[in-house]
Amino acid sequence: MDVFKVLDALACPLPLSGIDTDQLIPARFMKRSRADGYGNFLLYDLRFDENGQRHPDCPLNAPRWQGAKILVTRRNFGSGSSREAAVYALADYGFTCVIAPSFGDIFASNAVNNGLLPATVSEEDAEALLAALESSDGSARVDLETCEIRAANLVIPFRIDPVWRTKLLNGWDDIDLTLSHSAAIEAFQVNDAKTRPWLVPKSRPA
């Protein structure tokens, strides 16, 4: 996984609350292999009408926000389904950070597993940031070392679980870390088989 330290990029404001994972990637696109890329399907029904024409008023379609790597939005971003494809769509589109007042739990953990930073700010700071981006050149700096966002004349602190922060700062992958605990996992299973002999389903009806 890529290391995340400081990000200087365009920050696209998306002033909507409750953007759930069904909107981030509608279910109908989830039959595809990741190798094909999921970026085109990001927020598909917000970006395109039923004839596949771009909605002119969707910020993601505006020329000035092309190339944005940071998304700034309102509360409860990524609620809903556990589909990691929602993160794939954001990442494949080019986003590496989402700033919002609250996130769906599963989405946030999926994000971190893919090197995408979910940065939590207060509702007031989110509103200030949304406004500042509109009236400035739209660039922002997200510093994961100091947990600060700078944009226009604003300096805004953000929150992230310290464990997730460490993981992102180092680009760590859980699986390798866990495999280094294989002996402990083995010991747990041996002991557990004695204390909970009923754990493994015995009956295997045809």
């Binding site: 556990s82 589909r83 990691e84 494809a85 999926n110 597993n113 859980d174 699986i175």
Partner: peptide, 17 residues
Amino acid sequence: GIGASEVAHVLMTQTLW
């Protein structure tokens, strides 16, 4: 509920952080 990275993690290690 968990995401795909975690599903892979559980398949390989039967554990989760």
